[in-house]
Design a protein around this nucleic acid. Structure first.
Length: 594
DNA sequence: TTAGGGTTAG
């Protein structure tokens, strides 16, 4: 493994992704304002990321994917003040960047906002870095937009360092700033930290509102902590911020996803009892719950109830029903919903077509699925990663691997980034001997093109290789990645260590992990947990406990996952006393939230 | 409409 990925390179990778949540009230802050403010101990400079895709070059690359220099110039001249596409927005930005006198920050924010709306987070960050270099000073709005971008890119360290910047610049973090950060933690699987952050900001006297709590409650539900979400909701009843339809709907949806439709209905009644009216989102969530259980009578009842309240089904509602019918193989009914959808003036979208495609694939009718795919394209819709995945999976299942690989190539050429499951379909299961290296070659072929694979692509591929038990291929891939000049990051090391542990190569995983520690690589709790889990699975409990101490020595605090892993291992070994001791410690550390 | 929340497809 390339001598542990070339030690020197790795030292540069000292992770900045671990959020720094230390919130302190300083004397200086109290002297300046009656309202406390936050001081962050983050050390990362936003805009100076080590991410190879960051920087202005990445934005230029994004642009070059869709624009020739001629069309680019055209946009620079003719772009509207309210850009409608990412191309318009980037062009507008470049245009105003060179204006004399320079435009107001408001103008910059408007454009950044529109770029973010189309989810081009990297582009927004890169463009602003360039503007800042030219002397533009961000305002609170700008920084909030950028925090949102970093959150969506999973770069919580950067997001929190911007909170520090807000304070440094003399701004007061807004409720929106704090809510965005809480959401960032939630969408990056750190709901515990989000709750801790919530506790801290409340303790410091900051105000949160309905949106903040809606965000937290939804985060908890999405993490499968629906009961905790209910507790939080009920706690709100005695507070200034009151429960609303969004909070109730998030939990109703959470219960439905867990198959607990009765609990969802109880909550629905509770909400109505409080005088909060359900809306189309609430009804769609409930309909989804009933549909997935095949309770069509209840679905019909809800549709009638909606009609009586003059609430019309929307595209989501129809898609939920199309999907449910398709999964039961009831294509006639699915078609009827499809027709009704159009009658209501709701245009079927990529999700509608994909639900149909998926249904036909499940019935092994891949030919019909492909027909629907083609029909969708003829209708002017652009298939996305899911649409391709459905077909790739369909072809793989009927052993038409060549067709699947050809679709894989097509999706990459269309600039769609495959996800782990794409590679799993292609490399997992029978009849795929040789496919692994073929996929690998396709990825390599993309080097130097507009679709050049990056660290994310390689991470996904590596994960898929491990999951499909292609250990040797995975190890070879690691070497190949370094040879191709891609700088592995802590996330990739985690995939590698996890894959080695699960593939029965614990010694190799442990050696690599220890090597990372020796050279001073700052590993986060996620990576430590992987190693703890690997050791526990092999019954090396004492070593796992030693690692628990070691992680704290390395400045990494164990979390609930660390303790749960150790406790589970102890219980399996019937070491109940030791498990109980650890449980107390977990409780003392306030890690028992649910 | 200068920044943040809930519903659909593997």
């Amino acid at each position: 493994m390339k001598q542990y990925y070339e030690e020197v390179k790795m030292k540069q990778m000292k992770s900045s992704d671990t959020p720094s949540l230390s919130v302190e009230r300083t004397r200086e802050s109290q002297a300046r304002s009656k309202t406390p403010y936050l001081v962050l101990s983050g050390h990362v400079k936003p805009g100076q990321t080590s991410d190879p895709k960051s920087g202005f070059a990445a934005a230029e690359k994004d642009l070059s994917r869709g624009l020739t220099s001629v069309t680019h110039a055209w946009f620079c001249i003719h772009s509207s003040p309210n850009p409608k596409s990412i191309h318009d927005a980037v062009a507008s930005f470049n245009r105003i960047r060179h204006m004399h006198p320079p435009p107001s920050i408001l103008h910059i924010n408007k454009i950044l906002g529109s770029i973010v709306k189309s989810k081009h987070y990297r582009t927004a960050i890169s463009l602003f870095s360039q503007a800042e270099f030219k002397g533009f000073k961000p305002c609170l709005f700008t920084l909030n937009i950028l925090i949102n971008c970093y959150c969506h890119l999973g770069k919580m360290g950067f997001a929190f360092s911007l909170l520090g910047k807000i304070v440094k610049m003399g701004y007061q973090p807004h409720t929106i700033t704090l809510t965005t950060l809480m959401k960032g933690l939630c969408i990056n699987n750190q709901t515990e930290k989000s709750m801790e952050f919530h506790d801290e900001v409340i303790a410091k006297g900051f105000q949160l509102n309905e949106v903040s709590y809606g965000t937290l409650i939804n985060g908890l539900c999405k993490a499968g902590k629906t009961r905790a979400a209910v507790q939080l909701l009920h706690k709100l009843k005695t507070q200034a911020v009151k429960p609303n339809v969004v909070m109730y709907t998030a939990i109703i949806d959470g219960f439905c996803k867990e198959g607990l439709v009765n609990e969802a209905c109880d909550l629905f009644s509770e909400m109505v009892g409080l005088g909060i009216s359900p809306n189309i989102v609430t009804y769609s969530s409930l309909i989804c719950g009933f549909c997935s259980k095949g309770q069509w009578q209840e679905t019909t009842r809800l549709l009638k109830e909606m009609a009586s309240k003059d609430i019309n089904p929307n595209v989501y509602t129809f898609n939920i029903m199309v999907d449910a019918f398709c999964k039961e193989g009831r294509f006639k009914e699915a078609d009827a919903v499809f027709s009704k959808m159009m009658k209501y003036g709701k245009k079927p979208d990529v999700v509608t077509y994909s639900a149909l495609m998926n249904g036909y694939c499940l019935s092994n009718n891949v030919k019909e699925s492909k027909e629907i795919f083609n029909k969708m394209v003829r209708k002017g819709l652009t298939p996305d990663v899911w649409s391709y995945n459905i077909l790739i999976n369909g072809y793989c299942k009927i052993k038409m691997v060549d067709e699947a690989l050809s679709l894989y190539k097509e999706m990459c050429q269309k600039n769609l980034v495959p996800i782990t499951i794409t590679y799993s379909y292609l490399t997992d299961g029978p009849g795929k001997s040789g496919t692994t290296s073929y996929v690998q070659n396709l990825v390599y072929e993309m080097h130097g093109s507009d679709h050049s694979p990056d660290i994310i692509t390689y991470g996904i591929l590596l994960d898929a290789f491990f999951k499909s038990q292609h250990l040797d291929d995975a190890i070879t891939l690691c070497d190949e990645i370094v040879d191709r000049g891609v700088q592995p990051d802590v996330y990739m090391y985690s995939i590698l260590i996890d894959g080695l542990c699960k593939g029965g190569k614990l010694n190799m995983a442990r050696d690599f992990f220890n090597h990372l520690l020796i050279i001073g690589c700052q590993l986060g709790v996620y990576t430590f947990n992987i190693m703890v889990n690997g050791l526990c699975k092999e019954g090396l409990f004492d070593e796992a406990m030693t690692l628990l101490s070691k992680m704290e020595e390395n400045g990494c605090m164990p979390d609930s996952v660390t303790f749960e892993t150790l406790i589970r291992a102890l219980l399996q070994k019937k070491e109940d006393d030791k498990a109980r001791k650890l449980l107390s410690e977990m409780s003392a550390r306030n890690l028992l939230r649910q």
